[in-house]
Nucleic acid binder design. Sequence first.
RNA 1: GCCGGAGUGGCGGAACUGGCAGACGCGUUGGACUCAAAAUCCAAUGGUGCUUAGCAUCAUGAGGGUUCGACCCCCUCCUCCGGCACCA
Length: 833
Amino acid sequence: MSEYEPQRIEAKWQNVWREQGAFRADRDPARPKYYLLEMLPYPSGTLHMGHMRNYTIGDAVARYKRMRGFNVLHPIGWDSFGLPAENAAIKNNIPPRQWTNSNIAQMKATCERFGFSYDWRREVSTCEPEYYRWNQWFFLRMLERGLAYRKKSKVNWCPQCQTVLANEQVVDGCCWRHETTQVEAKDIEQWFLRITAYSDALLDDMKELGEGWPERVLVMQRNWVGKSKGARVKFPVAKMEGKAIEVFTTRIDTIYGATAVILSPEHPLVPELIHGIPGSGAIEAQWNRLRQKILRPAELAKAEKEGIFTGRFAVNPFSGEMTPIWVANFVLADYGTGAVMCVPAHDQRDFEFAEKYRLPIKIVVQPLQGAALKKDQLNEAYTDYGRAVDSAKYSGLESAKAIEKMTADAEAKGIGKGETTYRLKDWGISRQRYWGTPIPVVYCEKCGIVPVPDDELPVKLPESVALTGEGQSPLAGVPEFVNASCPKCKGRARRETDTMDTFVDSSWYFYRYTDAHNDRAPFGAEEARYWFPIDQYIGGIEHAILHLIYSRFFAKVMHDLGLIEHREPVKRLFSQGMVQKGGRAMSKSHGNVVGADEMAQKYGCDTARMYTLFAAPPEKDLEWSEQGIEGCARFLNKVHRLVERYAEKLRGVEANPSAKIDLASATAKEKVLLRKAHQTLKRVTNDLEARWHFNSSVALIMELVNEIHAQEPLDEGARPEIAKRVLELLVLMLAPIVPHMSEELWETLGHSGGLGKVSWPAYREDLAKEEQFEVVIQINGRLRGKLLVDDGLTEDETRERALSEPRVTQLLKGHAILKTIVVPKKLVNIVVR
RNA sequence: GCCGGAGUGGCGGAACUGGCAGACGCGUUGGACUCAAAAUCCAAUGGUGCUUAGCAUCAUGAGGGUUCGACCCCCUCCUCCGGCACCA
């Protein structure tokens, strides 16, 4: 009898799989496909068990689906551009590519060591020109369609390094390298992708995702797009001919309660308004103070409301009233029109502002029910809908109706119009960094911005570049790169030196997997049509918004380019929980990392995989416990011993396949074994198929092992072909979870050729079925006895049996039975007085 | 503040459609095997009370409700986690 030696058998089977090409998947219209994807990892160096959880869940599903006969596409790749490689280069003087590739090699080795069933032929690394070439290609297509454009935008600037900082390089408002140097906001020209062109599509198409995506992700995305319907209304400025302030409001019905108009400090009209007003010098000084504070948006959210009166008035276009114009810090410049009407009675922020600056409060909406609001008793704004009052001819209308009518009237009179605004902003993709995809345009002295022609792609990132982290954009210091000729006029041109946000790389990578080596297109249409949409995507919740909204946006653009037929790339999304140690997420900086290689070394990867699936339901956070994983190691040893114990005797035996088992001729022990095995199979199948409760699947399999163990010795009272079948079922159920050990035990049981061609067993309802049921007897809902009844007992018979139980009769003495509830095969509840 | 999610033994967690709360694992305790240890195996293990082989009773964050019956459905509240946060 041989010992369970995980290291030996894991290496052995990994070799077999490699030689067989066991996990290669090719387009095969004759078979149903299943595209299973885990989020592309960033090659940061070593993998810890937090990373592995994601892949373990995916691999269990991939292996299960293969056993169910699906043609499973299960690929992986590397999100290999990005800042850490640059930082490592600065720190250790290693070229980013070298650092990145050595990390990839290391992580790939770990993945192979865990036996993940990837089709490695489809491996993609985003920092390779063969890949990023297509980022550039997509960019050019967007440029052609006006979906890529340039505008000025703020970046973080460290005056000491004289360089742009990524958000991650800003620590508490200071440069990461100069902790005392305040980061400044600097306006520079940058490239944007017009994701806002798809705002409504991103919202509307969520209907397709409702079934398969977690609700919280959809909610987050909906809030991120932030659609709100309202109206734009013009307030003409008094004594300034032709000047008006436009405000955006969702509550035009409260306009008769507007007691001020408030502009953002950055509103372009402010200087004009202040100019020529008595005391304008002092006002301007205050305004400048307000404007300075704008620079720090994190604090702004918590800051107290502050404002100044400009000295000017605007005319309320509905009431004709003169309304003071203020400038205040709480009005956002880049949302709506950058100006609001201030209705203290019906907006909480306006209420607070009005209280501080003693602006009048005017109630123009009363609740439909309950006591009427009184001005002097208002402690907070009344923001609900109700009925308009003191609103001229609109008085008496309910809010929704008033909004509709007033919007229409505003439009008719040319003083406003209905408008929908979004919080979603266009996607700024320019990064003043080296390790990323070069943006494929040149700036020609004569022709201006000129796209690099397709046949000159990729614009390759130069490889030997001195990275210091100081000075201008790294690529700007590489003359061979910067100096270009204009594709149009062949004159002198300067190449764009910014690179793309790495979220571009990860926005479409899963299409590339379907056709990873295509050098004529990002992917072939046929390949995408066969494999898409992704049947199951698995990843961390931290990508709920950015990655998952950008990739939806890309798919919509690709759809409009005619590259794909679907609108949504991902049918189902699963967000797994984090792995924690000591109550905190595993990370290098917390110093609580449990290394994947270390676990594979110590226990074997099957044990690590099993513990990962068993310790918590997959969507919940998992606290890593050394004792917990030891428990799993014990269990696998136990299974190994169990199978080994009978292997010798059973090897030559032809197992009786489940389909042919005849229950009538079975012994008592065989019935118990078969019943438990098929009950387990039924529930594990359901867990893997629909519920994804891998933790309870593992628990069920443990129960099965306990039952088999209780029935030992198996060679007494059970025929070998039945005993063998039960052990086979055990091994097959373990296959998605602990694939190496399952292969080994399958072989031990006398099978050759591996599990690759073996299907998931079908459970038989009649074998799983209990012959007897324990019926619980309750009196007034309290447990008072139990009854063992045969299958097929009628309701009346069950009731009779319960009532004639001695203990029950005893307890019922002196009580009148009001009624009896019988749930067949489950319980009898006798209600007495 | 708003929006989501969660709260069950000493711990991780189970309980499928409203029907025996605590499956399975960890830990703990006792025992077997052993010169001894490890490994393995066996048994016990929510609290309280009692006339203690058993029985009763309480118990799923708190309080209430619906129901013959509630971890599960409804209402109110508390705590924790996550997201958004002056979005007009």
